[in-house]
Nucleic acid binder design. Structure first.
Lengths: 205, 205
DNA sequence: CCCGTCCTTGACCAAACGGTCAATCCTTGA
DNA sequence: TCAAGGATTGACCGTTTGGTCAAGGACGGG
């Protein structure tokens, strides 16, 4: 069934089971590289059963992307124009980092989509995402004009937050490989990014 | 032929033609998502002809990764312990940014490999790459100990350079989509990163 | 307890996949 | 100019791919 949301308990369970498995596979192989057989095996269901709950491979991917976008935009939405500028931005950085740590597969799914040129997310990017960024960029710009944070390109400031936090999820293998044993990448990242943005944002005298 | 390097002019030409096409396809669909037919079409050669020059799809991918690693490590190698610390680091940032701008497909190929857990690059990461980073981290640490740049986690400083520069290549669609018309992402990125690292590195009084 | 609906799957399909091979075409050096 | 080796490809192979379908199993309200 392509129809909206699950109606029975079994539907709810298997719907979730499939999306969970699909996230695993899509996030590490991309859309084209993922196969229904892989997803079916990981979900513990037969392939035809998968297609009983989702109309197609495409539909599974779309369902994941739709769910993802909400989660992804929320922390930026939470950045409050009324709060203390530096504290608000630092809080956003840490929330985004936690998101990357707790949902690395979602982060990689998103990254895969971007690498492929966002064929299934273009609308969301130039629509909701751009609108939200434009709005928050204005908030940042106002803070800068008031001299409460350093003057920077506000949109690129947001880009740098995205880049620095997602990096730890998307390039996890590289981060761990280069750090070697006996490191907690996420804890170190939290500290490092705190320092970085504190220094970056402090207004010049 | 899998054998080392091309011997005839035709081999040299087609070898390059194939790798060029393969880079296109691998970088935007990942290894599993890429097909020989796609590569063949983009190279303007028949599929059997591809396999006359490369033993397998795997071999093409490996050839690309091998070539990539050299290009990728070079700018970091060029960071000179004898130079001015801030200037050296800023120069590295700009070199890396240029690399991302001029070779976005290579950047995406690398990103794809990382997202998949680096199944074909693990050795290089924990080997050459880690060794180089460890070495350069020591240089950075020495500069910090001398009070010539601000005190930061040196390895994460390197991570942040990678993250911020690669982001503009790997998430190009997002960057352009969010910025909208009338922007030069690379020029803006160059300026923004110059400012960011200048502020970040300036030693505290 | 029974029947309609929901759920599940083995068997199957056409297309696409990576790769092979024999036959042929082309280039080149003597 | 001509033979030998390099280059090219149509036809093909076995497997995997996304997706279908009919048939049967499980479940729940009456």
């Amino acid at each position: 069934m392509t129809t909206s949301r699950p109606r029975t308990r079994i539907q709810a369970k298997n719907h979730a089971l499939i999306l969970e498995a699909a996230l695993d596979v899509f996030s590490s192989h991309g859309f084209r590289g993922a196969t229904l057989d892989q997803i079916a095996e990981r979900a513990g269901l037969s392939k035809p059963n998968l297609l009983y709950y989702f109309a197609s491979k495409e539909a599974m991917h779309q369902a994941l992307l739709a769910r993802l976008l909400e989660t992804w935009l929320d922390p930026l939405r939470a950045m409050n124009a009324g709060g203390d500028p530096v504290a608000e931005i630092l809080a956003y950085v840490q929330r985004k980092l936690q998101l990357a740590r707790d949902f690395p597969r979602e982060s990689r799914l998103f990254a895969n989509e971007m690498l492929q040129g966002a064929p299934r997310m273009m609308d969301a990017i130039t629509g909701d995402l751009k609108a939200l960024v434009d709005q928050k960029a204005k908030v940042l710009q106002a803070w800068m004009d008031q001299g409460r944070i350093a003057r920077l390109n506000p949109v690129h400031l947001i880009f740098s937050i995205w880049a620095l936090t997602q990096h730890y999820a998307d390039f996890d293998v590289q981060v761990r490989g280069v750090l070697g044993e006996g490191h907690d990448p996420w804890a170190e990242a939290g500290e490092y990014l705190q320092t970085l943005f504190t220094r970056l944002l402090r207004p010049l005298p």
